[in-house]
């Protein structure tokens, strides 16, 4: 089955892409650039770097713009799916949804309207097993934004390794955040994945942080050999 992977640049979509590549044919990545940082549907920090991820994975990229206004975002996403179907012959869509019924049900409806399959390989996954798999399989996942207590500025740009995961587990236990950040507590950017032919080297970045909200904006990045 030829699939398009909805890609925000974060760990969930990139890992889902890796799963899809193992079992089906990934024809393209699909991304929507939301102007609104509070977008309900689209993860926003560093989404412009999906272009570099697509190049690293040697996959075509379908990109569209969205004002990021609730529900209107769906029209913009639908447009992206139509382009992916027309240009890359996709038969289905893969998302990185884990727990979000809001996200999953809206994308399911868009797909059904277009007779596209909708696959969510991380749906209700074991969050701890998934986070450990990311580390074990060599995904280079960086924290690109924090949006809740108790995250401090030191988390911005930090790689999720075994030590970071242990802290996240402690936060999940103490502060009831979702371990995967599915509740919007943090966002990520993937600089390398097992299926990338090259890795992304970050050469410049800016961090801003205030009152448990912070962004790690990557302002310079390039592909390097692995």
């Amino acid at each position: 089955m030829r699939l398009g992977v909805l890609c925000s640049g974060g760990k969930d979509s990139i890992y889902s892409c890796g799963m899809a590549k193992e079992r089906e044919e990934v024809a393209c990545l699909i991304t929507v650039h939301a102007e609104n940082e509070e977008s309900y549907l689209f993860h926003t920090p560093n989404v412009c770097l999906v272009r570099l991820q697509a190049e690293a994975a040697d996959l075509p990229l379908v990109e569209t713009e969205s004002a990021g206004i609730k529900e209107e975002e769906l029209v913009d996403l639908g447009r992206a799916l139509d382009i992916a179907a027309e240009c890359h012959g996709i038969e289905g869509v893969v998302t990185g949804a884990i727990l979000s019924v809001y996200q999953a049900s809206r994308i399911q409806r868009l797909c059904r309207e277009r007779s596209l399959w909708c696959l969510n390989p991380l749906w209700y996954t074991s969050q701890e097993d998934y986070m450990q798999a990311l580390i074990y399989q060599g995904y280079e996942v960086l924290i690109s934004g924090v949006f809740s207590a108790p995250f401090d500025a030191a988390w911005l740009g930090r790689r999720i390794d075994a030590r970071a995961l242990a802290e996240l587990k402690e936060y999940a236990r103490k502060y009831r955040i979702t371990l995967t950040g599915e509740g919007g507590e943090y966002e990520t950017f993937v600089a390398d994945a097992p299926f990338f032919r090259k890795r992304i080297e970050i050469v410049a970045a800016e961090a801003t942080y205030h009152n448990f909200r912070g962004l790690f904006r990557i302002t310079g990045a390039r592909l390097v050999d692995k």
């Binding site: 799963m19 899809a20 079992r23 089906e24 893969v94 696959l119 969510n120 390989p121 991380l122 749906w123 209700y124 996954t125 074991s126």
Partner: peptide, 15 residues
């Protein structure tokens, strides 16, 4: 058998 959909429709029930 072994499809990408197993993760979504079977494994959550297994858990």
């Amino acid at each position: 058998d072994g499809s990408l959909a197993r993760e979504e429709f079977v494994l959550p029930i297994a858990r």
